[in-house]
């Protein structure tokens, strides 16, 4: 009985946890998975998004609503940043992954320092009626706030998947990583497509930030714990697979929850990479990846 209780609760919180990971990973599924840009600053951008939501919430705005509105300025920042990145790096020949990696580590640090300077290092959270209460479903007890990522992640992923499969710019985003010249021949401007995709990924950071800060308080460095795991999710999913991101994130979330419940919480952070290594040995292109 105790075992079943523990297992069911681990499963439920693991799924909720996976949905959070999926939201944080989604932007990276685009920048790293599709554009092949090693955007290690993405988790820091998610935290910046969380702080933006906190600011709006201090004025009494609902965090989800705030996040939806904030996607627009975040999209614009993404466009501007990509333009800078493309001019500084991409147009000057190839083989500069290490340079870009350094750039994005730098951006990550700058975002963190800016947050520290502006808000200090204290934990920040949002106040909403659904924080602090739990619901019970049979043996499962789960805080209401966990429902936010659990609903938001599938909704956002479904929306993004429809966008990627049904629209011209969605198709173009899936094509750009494979062959830019193919896009040009089809009448698309590859640079504009990549800029748009980067903007979209940045806009997704604020949605993830909202989910994170609703689930628990954040500090300026809260992105760091997500960094490795989020890359693991994207690679496990198969580079560029959007539905795969949700599945991979939930697998990792559930595994972490079980390890925490039955072994020890200290092992949990290693779970993502154990799963990643195991899977890549069997399926080198990830769970949903196709050979490229």
């Amino acid at each position: 009985m105790v075992f079943l209780d523990l297992a069911l609760n681990a499963l439920a919180s693991g799924i909720a946890l996976g949905c959070i990971y999926a939201l944080v990973a989604l932007g990276l599924a685009i920048t790293f998975g599709l554009l092949h840009i090693p955007n290690v600053a993405h988790p820091a951008l998610v935290i910046a998004g969380a702080y933006a939501v906190v600011l709006a919430n201090m004025r009494g705005i609902d965090p989800i609503l705030a996040a939806l509105v904030l996607t627009l300025p975040f999209y614009a920042v993404g466009l501007a940043f990509y333009e800078f990145y493309a001019r500084a790096f991409e147009r000057r020949g190839r083989g500069n992954t290490l340079q870009s990696l350094t750039l994005f580590f730098g951006v990550s640090l700058i975002v963190e320092i800016a947050l520290v300077v502006a808000f200090g290092t204290d934990l920040r959270s949002v106040s909403v009626p659904y924080v602090g209460r739990s619901f019970e479903l049979g043996l499962i007890v789960l805080p209401y706030r966990f429902l936010v990522p659990a609903l938001l992640a599938p909704a956002v992923i479904l929306g993004l998947w429809l966008y990627m499969t049904r629209t011209h710019s969605g198709l173009a985003m899936r094509a750009v990583a494979h062959d830019e010249r193919a896009l040009s021949i089809s009448g698309h401007d590859p640079v504009a497509i990549k800029r748009h995709a980067f903007g979209l990924a940045t806009a997704l950071a604020v949605l993830a930030g909202a989910a994170l800060v609703i689930v628990g308080p954040v500090d300026p460095f809260a992105g760091r714990v997500h960094l490795g795991r989020v890359f693991a999710v994207v690679v496990l999913a198969g580079l560029g697979s959007i539905p795969g991101t949700l599945a991979a994130a939930i697998i990792i979330g559930v595994a972490e929850a079980f390890v925490t419940a039955f072994l020890s919480p200290s092992w949990a952070p290693g779970v993502a990479f154990a799963i990643l290594l195991g899977t890549l040995a069997l399926r080198p292109n990830g769970i949903f990846g196709t050979a490229r």
Binding site: H168, L171, A175, H178, D179, R181, L183, S186, G187, R292
Partner: peptide, 18 residues
């Protein structure tokens, strides 16, 4: 220079631009 990971129809649809 086709897009290998898109279907035949998607490759054609992609080119219906401007």
């Amino acid at each position: 220079r086709l897009v290998p990971n898109l279907t035949v129809e998607e490759n054609l649809k992609l080119a219906a631009r401007g």
